[in-house]
Every structure is written in structure tokens, then in C-alpha cells.
């Protein structure tokens, strides 16, 4: 298969080379060793950056989850017109360039942006509040940008859900909230997890949004790698950062995936 060869040469091999380069002790490629990893794990700053990046991924995913479920519930309850409308609302931002969407958030959160101007006009805020270049602004912007990745799998698993089970719960007297919590969400969890993985991965690596909405003060892994590789020209350390970052994402993805599969088997067995 030609694609397999292509991926071997230009995807698998580059990652192997990345690992090899991370094993050089100095930027001059003289001696081999684990110095770069030692540097990473003993340096509070680098560890903090990794932790912040993963935390950002979790926060964005947590914000997306309820939004995606609410959208999905309104979608499946509606007729064909409402469904088409919601699907287009989801696809439109998904297909529009992320730089453009990030730019929109700069306008929305800016000093003279919509939020500040509205709050000032309503007299709720006395002076403009800084929203851009804050952690909260970054989480909200990323949640909007990545929401489609979560909404589509959630809608799909809601569509596949057997209505009879929900009806049975209703006939047995379960309230709507109870039906959602004990029937609908557990049965659609694999879809939500699939979406969560995509949102998590996409928001941790979203260089453009992180640097423009987060600003220079919020340094996350992608900017850290870029600065080490292009700014400082320390390739072995940049490679080590990339390896640690990739492995962290892989481990989290693997754990979530395994959880989803165990869940699926549980449902099949029941």
C-alpha cells in the first residue's frame, strides 16, 4: 500500500529521528545520554509548562462536554429542518480557518470588544476588564473553536441510541434529568470520549490560539518547543520536549480509549 510506505518514510521515521536527536547531550551533537530529559524533569519551569498545557486540554474538554450534549439533545429531539440548521451551525466554524476564528475572539474579548462594550453600556463594569491574554479567555475561545469536534460524535451516538430504552425508563417513572444521567449519558459515553480525545489533543497543540488569545505571558508546550527549536536553536532539548509532550498525549489518549472500550464491552454484555 503506497500510503503505508509514505507514512513510514515521512511520519514514523521523523518521530524516530526526533527520539534519537533528543538523546544528544549537547546542542553540538557530541555525546549521547539522557541529559535533556534530566534537564526537563528537574526544571520546575518546563514541568509547569507541560502541566499547564495538559490542564488547558482538560478544562477545554470539560467546557465542551455539556455544550455538546445540550446541542445533541436539541438536535435529536428536532425535525429535519432543525437538524440541518444545527449541523450547519456546527460545520461552519469547523471548516472556517482557525486563524480566522482566533481573530474573531481577539475582537470579542478585546479592550473595545463586544463583551467589554456591552458590560460598560449596561453599567455593570465601571472600566474595561482585561479578558484577552487571560487563562479564562483562552479556555472559552478554545472551547468554541474545538466544540464541533465534540458535538459531531456526541450527536452520532445519540442518534444510534435505542429510543426504547429511554422510553422504558420514562414508563418506569424516571424524570427527564434522571433519564439523562442514568440512561442517556452512560450509553453514549463512548461517543463523548471519542470527541473528548479530539478536543483534548487539538486544544493542547493549538499554537495559534494559544499564542494570540493567551498572549506572550501564557507559555504552553507548543510555544515552548518553538522557542527552543527556532529561537534558542537547541534541537536536542526541543526534541526532548516534543517527545515528552507526545508521550503524555499518547498515554492520556490510550487510557481514555481503554476506558471507552471497557465501557462498550460492558454495554454489549448487559
Amino acid at each position: 500500500m503506497p500510503l503505508a510506505l509514505f507514512f513510514l518514510a515521512w511520519f514514523v521515521a521523523p518521530f524516530l529521528l526526533l527520539v534519537i536527536i533528543s538523546l544528544f547531550d549537547t546542542a553540538e551533537f557530541r555525546a549521547l545520554g539522557l541529559r535533556q530529559y534530566g534537564k526537563f524533569f528537574t526544571d520546575g519551569y518546563s514541568l509547569g509548562v507541560l502541566w499547564d498545557t495538559l490542564e488547558l486540554g482538560f478544562l477545554v474538554t470539560a467546557v465542551c462536554l455539556p455544550l455538546a450534549y445540550a446541542l445533541g439533545l436539541v438536535y435529536v429531539a428536532g425535525g429535519p429542518h432543525r437538524r440541518t440548521l444545527i449541523l450547519f451551525l456546527i460545520m461552519m466554524p469547523m471548516l472556517t480557518s482557525a486563524v480566522v476564528r482566533t481573530f474573531a475572539w481577539i475582537v470579542i474579548l478585546g479592550r473595545e470588544g463586544i463583551v467589554n462594550n456591552t458590560m460598560l453600556a449596561l453599567g455593570l463594569w465601571g472600566t474595561p476588564v482585561r479578558l484577552l491574554y487571560t487563562w479564562g479567555g483562552l479556555v472559552l475561545a478554545l472551547a468554541q473553536i474545538q466544540l464541533p469536534l465534540m458535538a459531531l460524535p456526541v450527536i452520532n451516538s445519540l442518534l444510534k441510541l435505542d429510543r426504547n430504552i429511554v422510553d422504558a425508563a420514562e414508563a418506569l417513572g424516571a424524570s427527564r434529568l434522571r433519564r439523562l444521567c442514568t440512561v442517556i449519558v452512560p450509553l453514549t459515553l463512548p461517543g463523548a470520549l471519542a470527541g473528548a480525545l479530539l478536543v483534548f489533543a487539538a486544544s493542547t497543540t493549538a499554537f495559534i490560539t494559544q499564542t494570540l488569545v493567551g498572549g506572550g505571558r501564557i507559555v504552553l508546550m507548543p510555544l515552548n518547543i518553538y522557542q527552543q527549536a527556532v529561537g534558542v536553536q537547541d534541537w536536542p532539548f526541543a526534541a526532548a520536549l516534543s517527545v515528552v509532550f507526545t508521550v503524555s498525549i499518547l498515554v492520556i489518549t490510550y487510557v481514555l480509549n481503554a476506558a471507552a472500550q471497557r465501557r462498550m464491552r460492558g454495554i454489549d454484555a448487559a
Binding site: 521523523p14 518521530f15 497543540t205 518547543i225 534541537w235 516534543s242
Partner: peptide, 13 residues
């Protein structure tokens, strides 16, 4: 799923 930044750097190398 894998970080595209890491892949970009790897390909440059």
C-alpha cells in the same frame, strides 16, 4: 491526535 508541533519539528530534522 499526536501533537502537530512535534511532527513539524521532526520533519524539519
Amino acid at each position: 491526535v499526536l501533537p502537530a508541533m512535534a511532527f513539524g519539528l521532526a520533519l524539519l530534522m
